[in-house]
Simulated scan of single mutants.
Amino acid sequence: MPSARRRSAPLSLALMGTFACAEPASPPAAAPPAKAEPDPIVAAKPRLIAAPETGDLAAIVREEAAREAGPLVVTVGAGWCEPCVAFHDAVKSGRLDQPLAGVRFLEFDIDRDKERLAAAGYKSRFIPLFALPDAEGRASGKQIQGGIKGPEAVEHIMARLGPLLAETP
């Protein structure tokens, strides 16, 4: 029997050493972090939508209005119009994400679309024109027009656009 003890002793010591050198157990893995809810302001950034170059303007506006919920504003501008370009660039850059969250701007060009715009009631002596459409896609009469040049162009538009957007259903 003494020989059996001698054989088991090294094995016992070896097993003890294994457990003594083992790394401590890892703490249980933390549950993965819950997915953060999307920031509603980021999720609802204002969008600039280029209007098709042809087709019935009122039908185009009606279809875009029905596409999703949220305010739709018909915008008329031109590449040579400084306030038009300043506003467009401010929206694209994200500078107006918060105050214009969820607003869609259906953009028309006065030089290309003048006749179609007039036929649907979107008339203005000045651009940019921001107009709310009626249920038929025609101009509702609720609009702002014109802007100023220079660094305050966007702020000038926004001061008047806010009250107009307040009139959206």
Rank of each mutant, 00 (worst) to 15 (best):
P24A: 15
E155V: 09
L100Q: 06
P52N: 00
V74P: 05
C21E: 01
R62A: 05
R138I: 03
L72G: 01
G162P: 00
V91M: 03
A29T: 12
A153W: 02
F19M: 15
S8K: 12
F130L: 02
A29V: 12
P10V: 15
W80Y: 09
P83R: 09
G79D: 13
F108W: 06
K92R: 13
I144H: 04
A25S: 11
Y122S: 04
K114G: 11
A139L: 02
G137V: 00
E23S: 12
P83H: 03
K142W: 01
R95F: 04
L57T: 10
L165W: 03
I127E: 01
Q98D: 11
K114V: 12
A78V: 02
P151I: 10
E68M: 04
K149Q: 14
S124W: 04
A4T: 10
G150H: 03
R7D: 10
Q98W: 01
P33I: 12
V73G: 00
D109S: 12
L165Y: 01
I148F: 02
D113H: 15
G150C: 05
F108Q: 08
L96F: 02
A131N: 07
L164G: 03
L96H: 04
V91H: 04
P128Q: 11
A51P: 01
P169I: 03
L165N: 06
P10T: 14
L48Q: 10
V154W: 08
G79R: 13
T168R: 07
A51K: 05
A118S: 14
A78R: 14
P128F: 05
P83S: 05
E53S: 13
D97H: 08
S140A: 09
A153Y: 00
A120G: 06
A50V: 11
D134V: 04
L48E: 07
A139Y: 08
E115G: 02
M16V: 14
R116V: 03
L161F: 01
D39F: 08
T75Y: 14
F19W: 14
A22N: 01
G77C: 08
E82V: 13
G121W: 00
L117C: 07
G55A: 00
L106H: 10
L100W: 02
M158C: 07
D134L: 12
P83Q: 08
A90M: 09
L57C: 00
A119I: 09
A44G: 13
T75Q: 14
F126V: 03
I127P: 05
A78N: 09
D39I: 08
K123I: 12
L11T: 11
F126C: 03
L11V: 15
P2H: 14
L164W: 02
P169G: 13
A9S: 10
G102A: 10
L132I: 09
G147Q: 07
A131Y: 07
C84V: 07
P32W: 08
E136M: 01
V42H: 06
Y122E: 09
G77H: 05
A34F: 02
C21L: 15
A166E: 15
L15K: 08
L161S: 04
